[in-house]
Amino acid sequence: MELVGAIFTLIGALVLLVASIGLIRMPDVYNRLQVGTKASTLGTIFSLFGLVLVNPGWAGKLILLIFFVMMTNPVSSHVLARAAYFIKIPLTRRTVVDKLKVSDSALKVKAD
């Protein structure tokens, strides 16, 4: 059981490594956010879940941490994406469609 937990933690660490590599490779802010949010959330969840298996006595606090990460991480990435769009950081040249630009009433509301 402890060994399984340790391997879970190792997988989580590798996923976190992928998150940081993606952060370097991706071409623009929004894609970096995509990779960063998803991979870092799952990496942390796996690492902490592995620790739950290694040491079941700490399960309470670790599960609290897992829930906390799961709740807050999408919120912060959403807020950052919004901020990036409203201060007009350009999308990458490989972007195929931008529906939000067409309905720019959102931008007008922010300009007030």
């Binding site: 996923v15 991706m26 991979a39 972007t95």
Partner: peptide, 20 residues
Amino acid sequence: NLDVIKRVLSPSLPINPGIV
């Protein structure tokens, strides 16, 4: 996450992004 890992680690970076 499997999807993201696949995209990040493949050398040609297969992305096709947009806002819908």
